[in-house]
Amino acid sequence: MRDHKTIICRCEEVSLEDLVRTAESYRCSSRELKLRTRAGMGQCGGRTCRALVDSITQKCTNDSTPHDIPLGYQAPIRPITFSIMGEKKDE
């Protein structure tokens, strides 16, 4: 079980090494970094790693943090089942 890699995204098990390599190769935005590596695409919705992914992007591209949120949020912001989502509800 020993693993010397530093995991950044726990949900998708994306390592710091992979993220830095990708960010340096493509000098890309946080969103593209996410899409290329899957960091932030797991069940937690990026709550645990989004700040880390953003900081990797900034450090590798020398950009300052933008005021717009770099990694967008998408509903549902908590995992829910199809049955809850599909319920016909009367308000």
């Binding site: 530093t6 995991i7 710091l16 700040a51 829910i80």
Partner: peptide
Amino acid sequence: TKGDFKTRALLLATGAAETSLPIPGWT
């Protein structure tokens, strides 16, 4: 998760989350 509601005013008081310090083995 327990139904949808309508409201005239909505206050978000969702607080904070913790920032991670990733270190090998932290999972």
